[in-house]
Design a protein around this nucleic acid. Structure first.
Lengths: 146, 146
DNA sequence: GTGTCTAATAGTAATAATCTTATTTAGTCT
DNA sequence: AGACTAAATAAGATTATTACTATTAGACAC
């Protein structure tokens, strides 16, 4: 589990300032197990600090994503959620039927396949892999219907 | 370049009905070189058929994405665009500085790394890989500033 | 062709996410 | 401690995207 001091240090190193709002946001994300939505985060933070704007939430979530602290997860047309990445490669498997999501904790991106000549001068700093398919339950259900 | 008949056939096979709105939407995407935004598509389609709703545009773009005909590309906080995939593996390299985007036409996902034991019963049907980094121009600019 | 069933649609409403501008403040340098 | 400057903020406006509901029209059997 990531610690708040390390994250603040990462932010400082990335040139970001440490504000009370940011401390609060990070501490709430730390308390949350799993992914958190911007809406939920806003409601939680506003209990302690009622005048924090939605914009601040989104701005900071974006900043933390760019730093590689968090990862934004698309919920297939139902908004997004954010989850700690904490230096690991984290990819998601999302069931296209029921929307269930599991973490695929490993890296399935083949570095060799990213040969220099294909990159057209880009210097890669990160990547995101989303896997789609059917979870066991929906897969069996689909077979039964045939 | 994909042809409209093949796409319509794919849609039929996927259980989707062929409606005039869908023909129109697809034909406009076909005419467009590169990625197209929902907004732009709506404006174009409305020239011929003024009462097409935005909802219809989004709904159909989503359907085509699920069928694997199109691919939704995140523009880093500035909406999304949609582009033909046409059976290939298409990934994107997006510059986190200037937003420039290039297609990485190949597959960098290592099938071996997606070992069965890690998939927890999921049956994979697709994947999406987004690569982030700095394009040659922004990379050089960044070095010069130091 | 006609009838039936169900997906798709338009229109409207609601939600999610981002932008704009004036103001405040963290980090830095005296 | 006091002053400076660029980053961060709140508030409200705007754009992007999805949900809801009554109605329409493909697809398929007859």
């Amino acid at each position: 589990m990531p610690k708040i001091d390390g994250i603040l240090e990462t932010m400082r190193a990335g040139g970001l300032r440490i504000t009370p709002q940011r401390r609060l946001i990070i501490s709430y994300i730390l308390k949350t197990k799993g992914a958190v939505s911007a809406q939920q985060l806003w409601e939680d933070v506003r209990i302690q600090q009622p005048d924090v704007s939605m914009d601040t939430i989104y701005r900071n979530l974006s900043s933390l994503c760019e730093l590689g602290v968090l990862c934004r997860v698309d919920k297939l047309g139902k908004g997004s959620e954010y989850e700690f990445v904490a230096g690991r490669h984290v990819h998601y498997m999302t069931c296209t039927d029921c929307g269930r999501r599991e973490v695929f904790d490993g890296c399935a991106v083949d570095a060799e396949a990213l040969g220099r000549e294909k990159l057209k001068g880009f210097r890669l700093t990160g990547h995101k892999l989303d896997l789609y398919g059917l979870c066991e339950k929906c897969d069996k259900k689909g077979l039964a219907e045939k």
